[in-house]
Design a protein around this nucleic acid. Structure first.
Length: 431
RNA sequence: GGAGAGGUGGCCGAGCGGCUGAAGGCAACGGUUUGCUAAACCGUCAUAGUCUGUCAAGGGCUAUCGAGGGUUCGAAUCCCUCCCUCUCCGCCA
């Protein structure tokens, strides 16, 4: 959520931002917000005046009653009218404020100066060119679906039977490999990158979704359990960032860094027909997420740290990747700056998104009221929140399986994962 | 699911119709004292909106005691609904 003061002071800057994000159509909402704000201000002034009067007279009534000198009847009758006026104004006021809040919650975040201006994904900037590692693939490569099936480690058909399309099943060494990846990534972030591990709930309430910005904008992408009014998390970012919702953090505790494994659930409504095969688009996947809470002046350095920690996983696994700096037209509404890390798929012959590292500045902190006192005496400030996937396993698994396949149709286990899997290779005989 | 207790500032905790934005304590911050540390003592210490003021210091007004309604001239305090926490019982794991 943007600071209303910022919008008041410099509405044209916000309008420019909307256009840069290819959201020019939102402009009327912004204008509406400013109108409502003006009306609210006038109304508040009038209401406050009447309240001041009421408070003053109420004290007089108290004095009269206490001293027993004379009757307060006339004053009381007068104040009944005043109270009614106040109630009418306050009713209107709460409608106004609700409308404003709704608009405000729907407005995207500012953009950082370093974000390239562009219309769509085609104009994203390559921040780091393909980082490659040697893999001998001098034979017709199989894709992850073929490998998964022939080695009997992935079963999309049965997943579809028991749940629906997009709910993959890992079997045998496939399941073990998946678990190895998750454990390796968590260990890496906690032991080498200084993160504290969190194992969060997978269902959250609506306040949590609102806190991180998935509500109301992406409400249709989230699974909802109607009975209990709970939502399946689309990413661990939601529960982990909301860990400190409504809290005043100790300045000495910053920066706070959490790494969390979670399953992630996404409806992916409206995205059928594109990249839908196998792991390329799923409703449930596994991810290790990094979340940071920092002082405002430290957040951009922290973003680079998160990106580097995510890259470190790929380097350790020797999986070819590149890093994109998302342009203004492609970056998500909540972020001020975002890097995408994409892994190469030899079978698909293209890059697949495996991580997104974003700075939200105070956008989420303002929504979820996460503050700190910069030093003992000064006013509370909002922290900056950031997060990055480190990483999502599904696309990573695609790239891993494809790169580590052999001419015989087996899959070698990357060196660093072997202590976690307990085996070096997945062969036909696996079961 | 049933019965009870409770939700107050950064934290703990008093208050239970007007003098309470809220006692007291802790923490924090500034200072005095001190060989250093500690202790002691003094002082300062909520947030937001709005008006005023030299876009200053400061001051005025308003709101906020889990959330939302209600009663009342006036609510942290009384009533209703909801949410949450704790204890006991039951049920399931």
């Amino acid at each position: 959520m943007l600071d209303i003061n910022l919008i008041r002071q410099n509405p044209e800057e916000i309008v420019a931002m909307l256009h840069n994000r290819q959201l020019g159509s939102e402009e009327p909402k912004l204008r509406k917000l400013l109108d409502l704000d003006k009306e609210r201000k006038e109304l508040v002034a009038r209401s406050d005046d009447q309240k001041a009067l009421r408070n003053k007279v109420s004290k007089e009534v108290a004095d009269i009653k206490k001293s027993g000198a004379g009757s307060a009847e006339e004053l009381i009758v007068q104040m009944k009218t005043v109270a009614e006026e106040i109630s009418v104004m306050d009713t209107r006021l709460s409608t106004l404020e609700e409308e404003m809040e709704n608009i405000l919650l729907g407005l995207p975040n500012k953009l950082h100066d370093s974000v390239p201006i562009g219309r769509s994904a085609e104009e994203n900037v390559i921040f780091k060119e393909g980082v490659s590692f040697e893999h001998r693939l001098d034979f017709p490569v199989k894709n992850h679906l073929e490998l998964g099936k022939s080695l009997r480690i992935l079963d999309f058909e049965r997943g579809a039977k028991i749940s629906g399309a997009g709910f993959p099943v890992y079997i045998g060494k496939g399941a073990r490999l998946e678990r190895a990846l998750i454990n390796f990534m968590l260990d890496c972030h906690t032991e080498r990158h200084g993160y504290t591990e969190v194992f969060p709930p997978f269902f959250v309430n609506r306040e949590s979704l609102r806190g991180t910005g998935q509500w109301p904008k992406f409400a249709d992408q989230v699974y909802h359990m109607q009975e209990d009014d709970l939502y399946a998390i689309p990413t661990a970012e939601v529960p982990v960032t909301n860990l400190h919702r409504g809290e005043m953090l100790d300045a000495k505790s910053l920066p706070i860094s959490y790494a969390a494994y979670s399953a992630c659930f996404r409806r992916e409504a409206g995205s059928y027909g594109k990249d839908t095969r196998g792991f390329l688009r799923v409703h449930q996947f596994n991810k290790v997420e990094m979340v940071k809470f920092t002082r405002p002046e430290e957040s951009y350095a922290a973003l680079e740290e998160i990106r580097e920690s995510a890259e470190a996983i790929l380097v350790a696994l020797k999986i070819p990747y590149r890093v994109l700096l998302l342009c203004s037209g492609d970056i998500s509404a909540n972020a001020t700056k975002c890097y995408d890390i994409e892994v190469w798929s030899p079978a698909e012959q293209k890059y697949l998104e495996a991580s997104s590292c974003s700075n939200f500045e105070d956008y989420q902190a303002r929504r979820s009221n996460i503050r700190f006192k910069p030093d003992g005496k000064s006013k509370p400030e909002f922290v900056h929140t950031l997060n990055g996937s480190g990483l999502a396993t599904s696309r990573l698994m695609v790239s891993l399986m494809e790169h580590y396949q052999t001419a015989e149709g087996s899959i070698k286990v990357p060196e660093v994962l072997r202590p976690y899997t307990g085996f070096d290779e997945i062969t036909q005989a696996a079961e």
